[in-house]
């Protein structure tokens, strides 16, 4: 069983929703990002989404755009992202890590080599925002051979006609994008999310994680009633940016602040069904 499948099976047994934490690899710099990453599981993250920085993050709002640019400015590369995970795995062999980002850096690295290296580094799955099901056959066989899950996104525009295309070849879990908008932009509406999850759950046995609009403990709690996991990203990287001055200088305390926010959000998600 993969780390992802095992983790969702455990959560199901405990009848609680998981908490998925997104941070950008290398934000605000390599070492700080590692400090945050290594302590995410202890703070309550059941699954980690690690953003691969890209110059042109078309589906992201300002918070994640800025975090991507901070990482790139600090000299981050794809090799360093894989390195971060390799280091993380010397501390933690059970928490699933999925990489999230855009296709060009992967394509540039070479799809087959990337999947092999990512798997060797200890990565469990890939969310590639701009690699549609129509285009991912060029990567799918390499991911499969390396044991990486391809995690697909369903959205409010995914109607009954579209859903089979999204699910065909999906593995690991399904990511429901709860708003029509970029990351961190609109507020989540738990009632429409609950309604949207019904046909998804009926169509797939994969766990469904919900993200893109969850900002507060209340949001996390509401989503965790119906979803298998709640994802928070923009709020976490926005917390990092509070410690970065206009001149780009980092003041101390970012890891503690982010981890403390993760602790609160994770507790809300975990306790939602009690």
């Amino acid at each position: 069983m993969s780390r992802i499948a095992r983790r969702f099976a455990e959560l199901k047994k405990q009848n609680r929703a998981g908490f998925v934490a997104f941070i950008t690899a290398g934000d605000p710099n390599l070492e700080t990002s590692f400090e945050i990453l290594k302590d995410l599981p202890a703070a309550g993250a059941d699954v980690i989404e690690l953003g691969m920085p890209f110059t042109d993050p078309m589906a992201d709002g300002p918070a994640i755009q800025l975090s991507s640019l901070r990482a790139l400015k600090a000299g981050h590369t794809m090799a360093k992202t894989l390195d971060l995970v390799r280091r993380f795995r010397t501390h933690d062999q059970t928490t699933p890590i999925v990489l999230m980002g855009y296709y060009n850096p992967i394509y540039s690295y070479g799809g087959q080599k990337f999947c092999k290296d990512a798997s060797t580094a200890g990565i469990d799955g890939l969310i590639i925002v701009d690699l549609s099901p129509e285009e991912d056959p060029e990567l799918r066989p390499h991911a499969k051979a390396a044991g990486l899950d391809i995690i697909r996104l369903a959205t409010p525009t995914t109607d009954a006609k579209r859903l089979p295309a999204v699910l065909d070849g999906a593995s690991g879990f399904l990511y429901y994008v709860s708003i029509t908008g970029v990351t961190g932009s609109k507020d989540i509406d738990p009632i429409s999310v609950a309604k949207a999850l019904k046909p998804l759950k009926a169509a797939t046995s994969l766990p469904v994680a919900v993200g893109f609009g969850i900002k507060s403990e209340a949001d996390a709690k509401a989503v965790a009633q119906t979803a298998d996991a709640a994802v928070v990203g923009s709020a976490l990287v926005a917390e990092i940016s509070r410690f970065v001055g206009k001149d780009g200088k980092l003041s101390p305390g970012a890891p503690e602040a982010v981890l403390s926010l993760v602790r609160r959000l994770a507790a809300s998600a975990h306790g939602a069904r009690n």
């Binding site: 589906a59 549609s132 995914t158």
Partner: peptide
């Protein structure tokens, strides 16, 4: 039929936009 000119072209967009471009 899938919008490719040889290796090039295609539909590399976020899933939210897929139904719209179809």
């Amino acid at each position: 039929a899938n919008g490719h000119f040889g290796l090039y072209g295609g539909r590399y967009v976020a899933e939210t936009l897929m139904p719209l471009i179809l």
